[in-house]
């Protein structure tokens, strides 16, 4: 059924490290990493909101850096390491960021959440104790329409404290409001 399309007929074939596992995948060579993950690898945890780099929804980590998967070619990922939301939890449980997002209500509709989680993870990897302003700066490229970001900041702070080994708990006023 498929007719000859413009450009090369054969699929490109790459291998890369996906969430710590060696992965091979074949795809049309002009596909973005976002499309390869969602369509060719059926990993739909990475979402999309504009496909033009204008919302941050599709953020994930390539070689540890948060990037927009809608603007990265799949072919450019050969031999590299890609981390998606599917790689965050392990058999031991959720990643501390995931735990904190769940606990604080930082995921409302949950659609922008994977992008926030991975961007925040990269932040915490380089800065174990970010200030509120540093968190805002790091997350300035991720749009959320539900939360007003506040629960997200609080979740990042909570996770950061726990990742530093502190026995941190959410502030009462974050959960119940001001008295």
């Amino acid at each position: 059924m498929a007719k000859n399309r413009k450009g090369p007929l054969t699929k490109a074939h790459i291998s890369f490290e996906l969430n710590g596992e060696h992965t091979e995948v074949a795809f049309a060579p002009h596909k973005t990493l976002l499309e390869v993950l969602r369509e060719d690898l059926r990993l739909t945890g990475t979402k999309h909101g504009c496909e033009l780099g204008e919302c941050g929804t599709c953020a994930l980590l390539v070689d540890g850096r948060p990037v927009l998967s809608c603007l990265v070619l799949g072919l450019a990922c050969a031999g590299r390491s890609v981390r998606t939301v599917e790689g965050m939890a392990s058999a031991a449980g959720l990643h501390p960021l995931q735990e904190a997002f769940a606990e604080m209500g930082a995921a409302q509709c949950g659609y922008c959440t994977p992008g926030f989680l991975l961007t925040a993870e990269a932040l915490l990897n380089g800065n174990a104790e970010p200030s509120r302003d540093e968190i805002k700066d790091a997350l300035a490229g991720n749009l959320c329409r539900c939360t007003g970001y506040i629960k997200i900041y609080e979740a990042v702070e909570l996770a950061a404290a726990r990742m530093r080994g502190e026995d941190a708990r959410p502030a009462e006023k974050s959960l119940y409001g001001e008295v």
Binding site: M88, A89, L94, Q98, F101, A102, G105, G110, L117, Y176
Partner: peptide
């Protein structure tokens, strides 16, 4: 104050 019942699937994608 508690988690939403669908909080876990939303943070795991």
């Amino acid at each position: 104050a508690q988690r939403k019942v669908d909080a876990t699937p939303k943070v795991t994608g």
